[in-house]
């Protein structure tokens, strides 16, 4: 009915968060390079890049799902744009958004969290290996 609106809304929020985090990272890096601290030399994937993975999954998935809803006639080009609202099935639509829509958003976010955890572990191991090599030398 309109389940894609839930991950779509999450995509808007995460895109704004990404922009804020990106700006903060840029400022931190500038500050660190002025002060000459080690933060400027910090290696690994930036958190804003990791948030970008979530954005791509949410925006891409929502767009393809929205197309599926157009295909099935659940989204229409005229106001109110959703057949459920036009037919007076708002309650049913909200229930579907609360179940299927929320599950979609949670599933994508959980998959992203898994990706972030795995990449963090790999980066940590790499950093440890580099440190131990430096100690040996």
């Amino acid at each position: 009915m309109a389940c894609f609106l839930v991950p779509g809304t999450e995509a808007i929020v995460t895109t704004i968060v990404t922009a804020v985090v990106k700006k903060k990272e840029k400022n931190d890096l500038k500050k660190a390079s002025y002060e000459g601290t080690s933060a400027a030399e910090k290696i690994g994937t930036k958190f804003s890049t990791k948030l970008g993975w979530l954005n791509k999954m949410l925006w891409g998935g929502s767009a393809l799902l929205a197309f599926e809803h157009i295909w099935h006639g659940e989204v229409i080009p005229t106001f109110p744009f959703l057949t459920a609202i036009k037919d007076g099935n708002v309650g049913e639509m909200l229930a579907e958004m609360g179940t299927a829509g929320v599950t979609m958003a949670v599933l994508v976010t959980a998959a992203w969290a898994g990706m972030v955890i795995v990449s963090s572990i790999i980066e940590k191991r790499q950093a440890e290996n580099t440190d131990s090599k430096e100690v040996k030398v």
Partner: peptide, 14 residues
Amino acid sequence: ALIYWGASLMWFAD
């Protein structure tokens, strides 16, 4: 890949 994985996960929930 991320676009298709996102859509796959959403359809899986469906």
